[in-house]
Write a protein that binds this DNA or RNA. Sequence first.
DNA 1: GATGAATGAGTATTCATTCAT
DNA 2: AATGAATGAATACTCATTCAT
Lengths: 209, 209, 209, 209
Amino acid sequence: MLNGHFRARASGGGKKERTRAALVDAAIKVVAEKGMDALKISDITTAADMANGTFYNHFEDKEEILREAAYGIAVEISRQLDAGMAGIKDGPTRVALATWRFIEIAVAEPDWAAVLLDSVDHVPQLNDDVASYMRSDLQLGVTQGKFDIEVTKFLVDQIMALIGAALRKQLQNGPDKEVTREVCENILRMLGMTPAKARKIIATVRAAA
Amino acid sequence: MLNGHFRARASGGGKKERTRAALVDAAIKVVAEKGMDALKISDITTAADMANGTFYNHFEDKEEILREAAYGIAVEISRQLDAGMAGIKDGPTRVALATWRFIEIAVAEPDWAAVLLDSVDHVPQLNDDVASYMRSDLQLGVTQGKFDIEVTKFLVDQIMALIGAALRKQLQNGPDKEVTREVCENILRMLGMTPAKARKIIATVRAAA
Amino acid sequence: MLNGHFRARASGGGKKERTRAALVDAAIKVVAEKGMDALKISDITTAADMANGTFYNHFEDKEEILREAAYGIAVEISRQLDAGMAGIKDGPTRVALATWRFIEIAVAEPDWAAVLLDSVDHVPQLNDDVASYMRSDLQLGVTQGKFDIEVTKFLVDQIMALIGAALRKQLQNGPDKEVTREVCENILRMLGMTPAKARKIIATVRAAA
Amino acid sequence: MLNGHFRARASGGGKKERTRAALVDAAIKVVAEKGMDALKISDITTAADMANGTFYNHFEDKEEILREAAYGIAVEISRQLDAGMAGIKDGPTRVALATWRFIEIAVAEPDWAAVLLDSVDHVPQLNDDVASYMRSDLQLGVTQGKFDIEVTKFLVDQIMALIGAALRKQLQNGPDKEVTREVCENILRMLGMTPAKARKIIATVRAAA
DNA sequence: GATGAATGAGTATTCATTCAT
DNA sequence: AATGAATGAATACTCATTCAT
């Protein structure tokens, strides 16, 4: 992967910028293959086709590049998500659509999904960002009388756990719309919607996504 | 912890058995403290107050003792769970009660909870065992017309993800019955029960647990 | 130190000369701070506010710049020393005055003292130059019947060891005329003068220096 | 050097003790050859004919083994010195004899001399120990009216500098009694004795040593 | 079986040096 | 000449594993 996503994005910048981005791409690839805990600096530089020492011209340590990778991915997914969420006013639809599209985007770039899953433990900041994004839509649904539940930090944890399981499943078995549909329905039901209503929302979302 | 749970259980066996069990206890303690990935053999033997090399008289490698630790914990929790489940015939009640008690037991022995959470990734067999345990109760609820959902492998994954999040939360913040209640309700709602019915079941379960 | 001693001296020369001198100044500063063994090329260029690679446009390697720095300092101190020595005909007075002023000059520019001390091991040529400077005054004193000793290479080593200890002391504790006085007296006594005569010479020298 | 001094001394102890001692012997040898600053762990283990990692079973880091080596040498030299100093009551004789024998012992085992010289910078404690040893003899000479000088910390530094120069000389050129004699005389003269008296003391000492 | 010293492969990190711009 | 990114050899240190006692 001499030209991953971040490398491509950095093609306008200077040489330093490009090398740095290439290292981030390589790190993402390696984390996806071996997991964060087994990550070695030399894996990254080998994947980026660079000398070992080059890593240290750009990053202080492993943590730094992982944080940057996770963040970069999160930002990019955010960007793609936001694009399609604009005019949606219905709480349940927003929740389901965001979930659906998030999973689709992540699964389309499986390395990203893998890094995000690993990042949950290593980059706490990421959790907080996603959480606050989610809370407002949840609150919206409650205010609209569509959700029958109290919006707590732990509720957000629960939803993220469900989404995480869906990502993991598709990482193992490949993309599977049924899994995506199930998790979206599960979330809506958990939030207090009847199975019937949940199914209806999902049908709309499926078409829109 | 010179006399952890497994050491105590093995007190009837031979010396070999006791040493092995003491190592397992030590491994559990250390995994709970540092996590599986950071685990060192010397941590285990030090915690067991033994010499370095003794480990290899009993286990082939790290994997083996971890598998044994996770499995031992699962068996023990199973045993405690089963004790209280006899006689319960109602599907939702079985699901909620099993969840409630599982969490209570695991959280009461936080080292166990920590090992189980780490084991999800490392000991796949464990998942399958829990899954089959759960499936029958889920199926029961469906058959009884209490759950409006299709019982799939992925559904079990989803439930386990919710339970995992609850364990994690209580490992961080200490025991919290509200969290346990929330996750039980969430599961029942996800399975298609109305919030009201779910709440009612949980009230019963809470009293029984 | 964008304008150290050597940089200033080179202000008449070409650009190349000025850059080279600035690097020497930077090297002196860094050696004084960290010692020769801990010296890094990047320390020098950073101190000189230049790019890493610039160093190699001017010096073959570390040794070269260190030799140049030590030599430059020695030459400069020589120049300052010589200025005050003209006209002094008495051997003991020459030895004491040269010692006194050498120490004063070196201690006034502590970076120089530090580099000289470190250079003793690394730039043997330096030793020889100082030695021959010293020998003639020693010989003079002997010829004048003031010193009762045989002038050998080792005698010069001994004197230099005494002076080195005085420099080290003042580098650690800051300038201290008492130390300077003691070392001058010690040298004269070692050369065979009575304590009383030595003290008298030093009194004169102290006033002259 | 599979059986250096410390290894031999440890032959009574356990395996651990012997390995540790062998490493110290190896370290001394390597420091003598390359100097302390260029010392590599792998040099030590190679010289001791051991695996790289063995070092870390016995020492925390480089500093620790160097400190131990320097101390071991100092202790051993002390032991040998003390043996011959017992009945000597005359201050100047004590100072000269201790100096003479110290140099002889150190030069007879040139690795020790090399390590001691390097240790001056790295093991400050060593200086203090030698200094207090020396002070009492100096003070004795003053009290006896043989030395005409004030005993200061700096005076001790001066004497040590003279001795250091003598060690260095003989390390380079091999043992040389003339050098030893000169430094002893120089010290006595520096302490305020006349050349004649100094020479007389040295003649006695030379015979005794 | 238990011990713990020895092993050595594996990994992170530094830094002198090169070289394309 | 100056720049500074890239290089990769050198080195410290860790830790699973072996094995003689």
